[in-house]
Simulated assay, not measured.
Amino acid sequence: MGAADVVPGVSGGTIAFITGIYDTLLESIRRVNPSIFSLWRREGFAAVWQHVNGTFLASLLTGILTAILTLAKAVSYTLENHPIVIWSFFFGLIIASAIHMIKQVEKWSVVEIILAVAGAIFAYGITVANPISMEFNMLTVFIAGSIAICAMILPGISGSFILLLLGMYAPVLDAVKSLNIPVLALFAVGCLAGILSFSHVLSWLLNKYRSFTIAFLTGLLIGALGKVWPWKEAISFRVNSSGEQVPLVEKVLSPGAFEAATGQPALLGTAIVMMIVGFALVIGLEKVSEKLAD
């Protein structure tokens, strides 16, 4: 999940779903609520830890942070110097993930199909949307945190990309670099409020309307394919933390059109190999999670 969250446009929620921990993750987060304080007073910290599945959450958070710290530079370097290679890998990964989620729907009725199409349109609309410029103040920092964290646990939607669209990516990144504690604390509170409230909603939907919900989430994943398509041409830019212009909104091209528009090789053979690698990785993760479940 940490490795996926490093890449703009790829969600850690996708990885959680294909590894079979998505429901456990939502339920564990859902249990973190004010009732744990009364449980702590009655039965102590050990009971609270067990109630919220603390070992699972701690292991997951450790894995995410480890991946971010160790892979961030490598992924950033590859995105800048070999974009077709890494986007092809994630394209294959998401294709296999979408197939995995399609199989989770027991019966595809008209309602499921409509929800999947709606999810795909929604996700694609986000990937091609023009960014807005929110005024930087305490309220918008809180709102940005609460929205971005919700996106991070949804398959197919990237929280970092949501921050870019809200115009809050640079201010939050600057706060991280300068260790602006008040801003970071408010952003963290927003994240906490967002994930605790949204996890309740999503967990309830999966329990009550699992087929409908998974169909919509499958659509989100399919709609995000445009963001990870390897051959794109930038049509608008943003300034990154180093003061450099990097693509923000991009147009999907065919390999031939990409070569004509950019003058760069499409690397079609390499791209296909990396798509197969990404696809195979998901299949492998699926098989491993099935064995662990048994």
Rank of each mutant, 00 (worst) to 15 (best):
A129C: 02
V128P: 04
I126P: 02
I132M: 14
V128D: 03
A116H: 01
N137A: 07
M134R: 03
I132E: 07
M138F: 13
A120S: 09
V117L: 12
F136Y: 13
I153Y: 11
F142R: 10
M152T: 06
V117I: 15
I147M: 13
G119H: 02
A120M: 04
I147Y: 06
I147P: 01
F136E: 13
L139Y: 13
L154K: 02
I143D: 05
I149K: 07
E135Q: 14
A151I: 05
Y124H: 14
I126C: 02
A129G: 04
I121R: 00
I132N: 02
M138V: 12
N130H: 12
A116V: 01
A144P: 12
G145R: 08
S133L: 08
V117N: 01
V128T: 12
G119Q: 03
T127N: 01
I149E: 03
S133F: 04
A148H: 03
A129T: 04
V117K: 03
Y124G: 09
C150E: 10
G119M: 03
A148M: 03
F122K: 01
F142C: 12
T127R: 01
Y124M: 11
T127Q: 02
L115S: 07
A123K: 01
G125V: 02
G145N: 11
G125C: 07
L115E: 06
A148V: 09
L154Q: 05
L154I: 11
I121K: 01
I149W: 06
G125S: 09
L154D: 09
S146T: 13
F122R: 00
F136P: 02
P155C: 05
A118L: 14
I121S: 05
L139A: 15
I143E: 06
A148C: 08
T140K: 10
E135Y: 08
A118W: 05
V128E: 11
